[in-house]
Write a protein that binds this DNA or RNA. Structure first.
Length: 423
RNA sequence: GGAGAAAUGGCAGAGUGGUCGAAUGCGGCAGUCUUGAAAACUGUUGAGGGUCACACCUCCGGGGGUUCGAAUCCCUCUUUCUCCGCCA
């Protein structure tokens, strides 16, 4: 959520910046400013009314104490109309504040100046590419065929138990998955991130805090009986650890990592793009989250990108990094880098990580602040990234490491797996 | 799931109708002393709105009510603790 103060002071700048998202923000910002004005006027009227009746109450108290009950009763009568006024003004204020809040929720984050203009994923900017694309045998298979051939992932079984998009990992497939999780967590921990295990269901306030609510509730599974949401990413519970917190400036940076399953309802895709592991309702992911001082958050973002690079380098997977364009940028992000692994057998890039700086956008909703050197509270910056999303890494490994003899295990994972070949 | 108790500032904890945004202790910050640190001492220290700055307003788990006036009384919800039951 944008800060009101920023909207007040930099309206034109915001309108300009949001054009990159192909949004004309002028009408909504005008409405916001108008409501803000109204809110403040109403607040001021209410404050004066309350001040008046506070004063009278004090006087009445004094009078009663000194035995002047009659005079007190005269004053009492005066408070009646003040009470009505303050009730009416209070309701008006609440209604205005709510309307204002709802509008602010609808405005996405301001893109960083590095964000390229553009409408779709085709307009994303490739900024880095590394790793050799292996030349596979013409008989090379996509991962869903390999999964069947070596009996390591069973999609039909998942359909029986739950439904489409809930695969069952079997034997060496399950073990490889567990190895990846352990490996990623170890790497993240070594890089200074503290490992956390967090709840997989969150309440409504947490959903609002990181921006999944309102508007995107359709993407999350909702447990109606208890009004809880299954997390779509560890970002939600991990970042919400700090909701309503004021932290010391000296505590920056705060670096956390966590492994969780992620649950996404993901409506509306089709064909090969959802085959196999490409798109699931339940998948595993290791996430990194950082809380940063505003002056350091972009340096931190670069640091996170460098860190994710090392994971892919170690796995010897060919990948590229994209800077997302305005049209593809997430609602809450100011700048996002996507990592994609090349799936040789599918002949396409698969997104496996998304690393973003949210600046103060989430922090404003979370009321996540720090105290600066003058003792003033200011909003912190939040960042997060996948390190990494498991299924597509798995797909990439299966497809790129396949040989006529079987699927080789990337060297760094062999100690975690306890085997070096799936055959 | 049943019975009882409780929810106050970063933490502990006082406050049962008016002068309480809230005693006190710890912690934090600044200073004195010290070569430096510790200890001791002194001062300071909740958040939000509002204002050029003040004034002023709101907040004692959430919501509602009684009252001229509520941290304090009433209703309700949530959470925590103790005991019992069930259970990985």
């Amino acid at each position: 959520m944008l800060q009101l103060q920023v909207v007040r002071e930099e309206k034109d700048k915001i309108i300009n910046a949001l054009q990159k998202r192909n949004i004309d923000a002028a009408p909504i910002l005008d409405k916001v400013l108008q409501l803000d004005e109204k809110r403040r006027t109403t607040q001021s009227l209410l404050d004066n009314t309350l001040a008046e009746s506070n004063k009278l109450s004090k006087e009445i108290g004094m009078l009663f104490k000194s035995g002047k009950a009659q005079e007190a009763n005269v004053l009492k009568e005066k408070t009646g109309s003040l009470k009505e006024d303050s009730k009416r003004l209070g309701e008006e204020l609440n209604a205005t504040a709510k309307e204002l809040q709802d509008l602010l929720y609808q405005i996405p984050n301001i893109p960083n100046e590095l964000v390229p203009a553009g409408n779709t994923e085709d307009d994303n900017e490739e900024i880095f590419k590394e790793g050799d694309i292996p030349s596979l045998d013409p008989s090379a298979l996509p991962h869903w065929e390999l999964a069947k051939k070596y009996d390591i992932i069973d999609f039909e079984l998942g359909v029986k138990i739950t439904g489409a998009g809930f695969p069952v990992y079997k034997g060496k497939g399950a073990k490889l998955q567990r190895a990846l999780i352990a490996y990623f967590l170890d790497k993240n921990t070594a890089a200074g991130y503290t490992e956390m295990q967090v709840p997989l269901l969150v309440n409504e306030a947490s959903g609002y805090g990181t921006g999944q609510l309102p508007d995107k509730e359709g993407q999350m599974y909702h447990v109606g009986a208890d009004d809880l949401y299954l997390i779509p990413t560890a970002e939600v519970p991990v970042t919400n650890i700090f909701r309503d917190n004021i932290i010391n400036e000296s505590d920056f940076p705060i670096c956390l990592t966590g492994y969780t399953p992620c649950f996404r309802r993901e409506a509306g895709s089709y064909g090969a793009h959802v085959r196999g592991l490409n798109r699931l309702h339940q998948f595993d992911k290791v996430e990194i989250v950082r809380l940063e001082h505003p002056s350091n958050s972009y340096k931190a973002l670069d640091g996170m990108v460098e860190h994710v690079k090392t994971l892919l380098r170690d796995l010897k997977l060919p990948y590229r990094i994209l800077r997302l364009c305005g049209g593809d940028l997430g609602f809450t992000a100011a700048l996002t880098y996507d990592f994609e692994v090349f799936s040789t057998a599918q002949d396409r890039w698969l997104e496996i990580s998304s690393v973003s700086n949210f600046e103060t956008y989430q922090a404003n909703r979370l009321k996540l602040r720090y105290r600066d050197e003058n003792g003033k509270t200011r909003l912190a910056h939040t960042l997060n990234g996948s390190s990494l999303a498991l299924p597509r890494v798995l797909a990439g490994i299966l497809e790129n490491y396949q040989t006529p003899e079987g699927i080789k295990i990337p060297e760094v994972l062999v100690p975690y797996c306890g085997f070096d070949m799936i055959d």
